[in-house]
């Protein structure tokens, strides 16, 4: 019995969402009175032993370069085999792009109950129940896992990473790696930007900004905050901003510490993509904008005046701090 945590990497670097998964998995192991181990696939440049500070005692590594691209079928077969040989009874993933594809396959392969999109530690007082977000963040469900082996994928930005002292033993894992049936022919990463789903702060603009030529004030604010930029659906549809920035029900769902909405009225479909944010600030000149009802802080005012002042005020605060 142990907890196995899948460590997702990209270009040799461990993803932030995986550090959350490691902390979460280590806490699950503590709850169950067992050990937490990690598994990483592909070639990694980072010092894996240092990940011990998140609470894992051992990291299994399959440093096969063929695993640098995520193939859900190959990954699931490797992780399932590792879980079985290491005697893992709980397998933890981040509910990110990789986790969504791989956790489901692992669960089906091992006939293990899956809670996808978990947001809290399991309740083990009577069975094994995990809280997860449902109805696009408008509610939670407590889901019992009935099988002996359990798979949990953790919503990004919903569990705080805790680093303490510790070093993990890194062990090469001998496991069958099948030839992937999917061939990756091109990878196009958006560089120089904070990835939207991993960002601590998101600055988002809507139709209230009146046109793509006015985005400068928003970009300045985002830069000052080290924030990712996002937009509402009409803005994405009108090609004022790239499609991948669209947050909402049918776009990207985000859960940052701080979401700043500028000139977005807050349609229910938009809220479904942002309502897991911890703090929401709304800047809108319409005091009746529905977004104010979902906000923690608000300014009723003209974005073109308020936003540059906000950027300057943050600059000033940082200079003073």
């Amino acid at each position: 019995m142990s907890v196995l945590i899948f460590i997702d990497q990209s270009e040799g670097h461990v993803k932030k969402s995986s550090l959350e998964a490691l902390t979460y998995g280590a806490d699950v192991a503590k709850q169950l009175g067992t050990t937490a181990e990690g598994i990483v696939l592909g070639t990694v440049t980072e010092d894996l032993a240092a990940l011990g500070k998140y609470g894992v005692s051992k990291i299994h590594q399959v440093s096969n370069a063929a695993l640098n691209n995520v193939d859900a079928q190959v990954y699931a077969s490797v992780i399932s085999e590792a879980a079985t040989t290491s005697g893992a009874t709980v397998i933890v993933f981040s509910h990110n792009q990789t986790g969504k594809a791989v956790a489901a396959r692992v669960a089906a392969k091992l006939k293990a109950g899956l809670v996808a999109g978990a947001c809290a530690l399991p309740n083990t007082s009577n069975g094994f129940s995990v809280k997860k977000t449902v109805f696009s963040g408008k509610a939670y469900a407590h889901v019992n896992i009935l099988s002996a082996v359990k798979v949990i994928s953790l919503n990004p930005n919903s569990y705080k990473t805790v680093a303490t002292e510790g070093t993990a033993v890194v062990e090469a894992l001998a496991v069958t790696v099948n030839e992937p049936k999917v061939k990756i022919t091109a990878v196009n990463k958006i560089t120089g930007e904070v990835p939207l789903t991993e960002a601590d702060i998101v600055v988002s603009g809507g139709r209230g900004l009146k046109g793509p030529e006015h985005w400068g004030i928003l970009l300045d604010l985002a830069k000052e905050l080290g924030a990712a930029t996002a937009c509402s659906r009409p803005v994405g549809d009108a090609h004022w901003r790239p499609h991948h920035e669209h947050v909402g029900q049918t776009g990207v769902q985000v859960a940052p510490n701080l979401y700043i909405a500028i000139g977005i009225s807050g349609a229910i479909q938009h809220l479904a993509g942002v309502n897991r944010s911890k703090v929401i600030v709304v800047i809108n000149k319409d005091p009746e904008a529905p977004f104010f009802k979902a906000a923690d802080y608000g300014i009723v005012g003209d974005a073109f005046e308020v936003v540059p002042q906000l950027t300057a005020a943050i600059q000033k605060m940082k200079a003073g701090a």
């Binding site: 859900a72 594809a101 956790a103 489901a104």
Partner: peptide, 14 residues
């Protein structure tokens, strides 16, 4: 948009 699991496709594929 109700259970948000994103898991059916992967499970069926498996």
């Amino acid at each position: 948009i109700d259970y948000n699991g994103s898991s059916i496709g992967g499970m069926v594929a498996e």
